[in-house]
């Protein structure tokens, strides 16, 4: 049985999702998450064993690419979307 969502869980999940939350947001998030998950917990009452076997049934056509180059000519314009790009490289603050 799931334990109630507390601020520790919120801290863990927000770290996983790389979301920095304000103190107010953290508090509200615990309550919101609890509400959402309670709504979702109703699923535990559904017997889904048959469903697991059905999971891959819809696999009629493989969609694959040939190993041929497709020029995109877009490298420059894509790099321009990164405002700090210089000399063709994208900078980030030093990684740990």
């Amino acid at each position: 049985m799931r334990q109630k969502i507390d601020e520790e869980t919120v801290a863990y999940v927000s770290k996983l999702s790389q979301l920095e939350l304000t103190a107010e947001e953290k508090r509200a998030a615990a309550a919101d998450m609890e509400e959402c998950l309670t709504m979702m917990d109703i699923l535990s009452g559904l017997d889904t064993r048959d469903g697991e076997e059905l999971l891959l049934y819809d696999n009629d056509q493989n969609v694959l690419r040939e190993d041929e180059r497709v020029g995109s000519d877009m490298a420059d314009s894509l790099l321009r979307c990164a405002p700090l790009a210089e000399d063709g490289l994208i900078p980030v603050p030093k990684t740990v």
Partner: peptide, 18 residues
């Protein structure tokens, strides 16, 4: 997963696509 070349080297960020 895309048609960009795998060739080694090349100027940085030239063998890229969306």
């Amino acid at each position: 997963f895309c048609g960009c070349s795998c060739e080694f080297g090349g100027s940085p960020n030239t063998r890229i696509c969306p």
